[in-house]
Simulated scan of single mutants.
Amino acid sequence: MAALLRMVVTGGPGTGKSTLLDALELRGLATEPEVARAILREEGGMALRADDPAGFALAMFDAELSAFRRVEAESGPVLFDRGFPDIAGFLHLEGLSVPAAIDRACRELRYEGPIFRAPPWDAIYRRDAERIQDWDAALASDAAVSAAWREYGYTLIDLPLADVSQRADFVLSRISGEL
C-alpha cells in the first residue's frame, strides 16, 4: 500500500488551478477542491470575504483542516487546490496578522509532496462571480501566497504556461518519482 502523499497547486486567482485538478481527477488522481471558492458560493460567503477578511480566513482554515484530516486515511497521492500557507498569504495581502492556529498548521501540518505554482497568466485570466480581483490584484495575490509558501519552508515548482493536458502531463511526470 502506497503512503499518503499530499501535494498542492497554489498561485494567484485565475491561473488554471481548478481546471488542472479537474483534468488530473479524470486521469485518476485523487484531488481536493479549493475551500475558498466553496465558501464564497455559500449564502453570505462573498459578504464575509468583503466585510470580515479575518473571519473568511478562519472559515478557510476550518475547511482546509477538515480536508487535510479527511485524507489521512487515504493512501497514495492527493492533490489539493491550495493549502494552509495560501491562507497566511491571503492574510498578509489583507494587512492582517496570521493567527497562532493558522501559523501552527503551516509549520506542523506538512504537505509531503511537491507544491506546484500556477504562475500568473494574463492570456487565461478571467474574472467571475467569485474571482473578483483585477489583474493587478491577482498579481499581488500570487506574490503573497508564493512568499508565504516559501516562508514556511516549501520549494515551489512552476507549472508551464501550456494547455491543461500538458500541465497535467507535467504534474504526473513530477510525482511519478515520488510514488
Rank of each mutant, 00 (worst) to 15 (best):
residue 103 D to M: 05
residue 54 A to L: 11
residue 122 D to F: 14
residue 108 E to D: 12
residue 93 L to D: 07
residue 73 A to V: 15
residue 114 P to S: 10
residue 61 F to W: 13
residue 113 G to K: 04
residue 160 P to L: 06
residue 122 D to K: 15
residue 149 W to Y: 15
residue 119 P to Y: 05
residue 149 W to V: 01
residue 59 A to Q: 04
residue 97 S to C: 04
residue 125 Y to H: 07
residue 151 E to W: 04
residue 90 F to C: 04
residue 59 A to T: 03
residue 159 L to N: 03
residue 149 W to T: 02
residue 81 D to G: 08
residue 166 Q to T: 12
residue 141 S to E: 15
residue 172 L to T: 03
residue 147 A to Y: 08
residue 70 R to W: 12
residue 80 F to N: 03
residue 114 P to Y: 07
residue 169 D to M: 08
residue 96 L to D: 00
residue 93 L to F: 09
residue 154 Y to D: 00
residue 161 L to I: 13
residue 44 G to C: 09
residue 45 G to E: 07
residue 164 V to D: 07
residue 86 D to M: 08
residue 109 L to Y: 13
residue 103 D to G: 07
residue 44 G to P: 05
residue 57 A to T: 06
residue 72 E to W: 12
residue 96 L to V: 01
residue 64 E to H: 13
residue 106 C to D: 01
residue 155 T to Y: 08
residue 78 V to T: 05
residue 88 A to P: 01
residue 41 R to Q: 15
residue 149 W to R: 07
residue 52 D to C: 05
residue 148 A to L: 07
residue 78 V to D: 00
residue 73 A to T: 15
residue 143 A to G: 10
residue 61 F to R: 02
residue 143 A to C: 11
residue 147 A to S: 13
residue 87 I to K: 01
residue 153 G to I: 10
residue 118 A to S: 12
residue 52 D to Y: 06
residue 144 A to W: 11
residue 80 F to V: 05
residue 110 R to C: 01
residue 74 E to Y: 13
residue 91 L to W: 01
residue 162 A to E: 12
residue 168 A to W: 05
residue 42 E to I: 04
residue 51 D to K: 14
residue 78 V to H: 01
residue 155 T to F: 10
residue 136 D to N: 14
residue 38 A to R: 14
residue 123 A to T: 12
residue 108 E to R: 11
residue 95 G to D: 00
residue 171 V to A: 02
residue 103 D to W: 02
residue 63 A to H: 07
residue 134 D to R: 05
residue 85 P to T: 04
residue 109 L to V: 08
residue 110 R to S: 01
residue 63 A to D: 09
residue 124 I to F: 07
residue 46 M to D: 11
residue 120 P to H: 08
residue 134 D to M: 03
residue 101 A to R: 13
residue 163 D to N: 14
residue 153 G to T: 09
residue 143 A to Q: 13
residue 48 L to F: 05
residue 98 V to K: 00
residue 108 E to H: 11
residue 122 D to Y: 14
residue 152 Y to R: 06
residue 142 D to G: 07
residue 130 E to W: 11
residue 161 L to P: 05
residue 134 D to C: 04
residue 161 L to M: 11
residue 123 A to P: 12
residue 85 P to S: 05
residue 130 E to L: 13
residue 107 R to G: 08
residue 55 G to I: 03
residue 166 Q to K: 13
residue 154 Y to V: 02
residue 72 E to C: 11
residue 158 D to I: 03
residue 122 D to Q: 14
residue 88 A to D: 00
residue 114 P to M: 06
residue 76 G to F: 07
residue 129 A to T: 10
residue 84 F to K: 04
residue 133 Q to S: 15
residue 114 P to E: 06
residue 77 P to M: 05
residue 171 V to F: 05
residue 140 A to M: 13
residue 89 G to A: 09
residue 98 V to Y: 00
residue 64 E to A: 13
residue 162 A to D: 13
residue 49 R to W: 06
residue 42 E to L: 10
residue 88 A to W: 03
residue 141 S to K: 13
residue 84 F to G: 03
residue 170 F to T: 01
